[in-house]
Simulated scan of single mutants.
Amino acid sequence: MATTSRVNLSDKIREALEDEIVSGKLYAGCRLDEQELMERFNVSRTPAREALQQLATAGLVDIVPRHGAVVATLSLTEYVAMLEMLTELEGLAARLSARRMPAALRKDLEASIRACEEAAAQDDPVAYERANRWFHETVYDGSLNEVLARQLRLMRLRMRHPQRSLFDRPNRVRNSMVEHRAIVQAILNGDEDGADRAMSMHISSGGNVYVDAVAKGASKKHAVPSA
Rank of each mutant, 00 (worst) to 15 (best):
R40L: 00
F167K: 11
A104D: 15
E179I: 01
E146L: 13
V70M: 02
R164P: 05
V64Y: 01
N8R: 05
R172G: 03
L76V: 14
R153D: 14
A115W: 03
G91D: 00
G142E: 01
G190D: 05
F135I: 05
G29K: 09
I183A: 03
V7K: 15
A115T: 10
E118L: 15
I203M: 05
Q122N: 13
A121P: 08
A227P: 14
M177E: 03
E179Q: 11
G190I: 06
L89V: 02
A223V: 05
E179L: 10
R172N: 13
Q185K: 15
P47N: 01
L154I: 10
N145Q: 10
R99I: 10
L157M: 12
K107R: 13
A213E: 13
M159F: 03
M38F: 03
M155P: 07
T77S: 15
A227R: 06
D123H: 13
M177H: 04
V70R: 15
M85D: 14
V71K: 02
R49I: 11
V147E: 14
L9R: 14
S205T: 07
A56T: 15
M82S: 11
P225N: 09
V71S: 02
Q35E: 11
L188S: 11
P225I: 08
V64I: 13
H136P: 00
V211E: 10
A120W: 02
K25W: 05
N208Y: 06
F41W: 00
A16H: 00
R197M: 12
L148Y: 07
L32F: 09
R153P: 13
